[in-house]
Nucleic acid binder design. Sequence first.
DNA 1: ATGTCCACTAGGAGTGGA
Length: 263
Amino acid sequence: MRIATWNVNGLRARLEFVKHWLAERAPDVVGFQELKLPDEQFPHLEFEALGYKAVTHGQKSWNGVAILSRLPIEPIEAGLPGEAEFGARLIRARVGQGPLALDFTTLYCPNGKDVDHDDYPKKLAWFDSLRRWAAEFVRADASAVLCGDFNIVPTPLDTYDEEALAGSIFHTPAERERYAALLAVGLHDLYRELEPATKAFSWWDYRGGAFHRKQGLRIDMLLGTPAVVARLKSVEIDREWRKKKGELTASDHAPVVAELDPA
DNA sequence: ATGTCCACTAGGAGTGGA
């Protein structure tokens, strides 16, 4: 089974690019973030033509998440309870069947903007809510995945410049504590399970030639319970898909893809 | 400090968000 997460930065602007990626990478289940469109504009037919069903939690202009699956999919819930005013940022579904089914959630975590901005303490509170919510159902012996754009750089290994950026947004001790507390409910970073010491990024700013200069951050994660880790075969960050494809503009995030046993 | 991109409003370029 192949699972993935990808912040597409606007699904209307990215649809053709995304379809190329789906055809080439053939994931079974994908979490998308930053759809930037309301649910009634979600292109279900375009994805059904490629064999995918979708559950969506969108809104006008900003945010928005969806799960695509070519395995059977049943919606569980949409929206982080009590945090609706921060936008459409969470959706959860059951994908697959029988003992191989996954409890799959995708997340677009708040950015926070700056440590002096009102959104920063609200971001921290949102993560507190997320941890309490996850603790309700995350169990070591059940296959659950939480994936998405976490907008936190967990460790110095995950940034291009810890010295310059330590203490700034995405890099604060308070954010890192929230991320660690989420994992402590029983989740593992699938990329780090297989690549414990590799400096790799999933996001590069559009500005300033950041991609070319290798100035990125690793903020997009696939997290899984021990039952998922036991099935983990490989993880890749699709860095090539951060590049322009002909005339098609890339998202500022690369997809992250993992292969689970059995295929 | 910021060389880009996306969506919105509006009916053309400027604004806000990331």
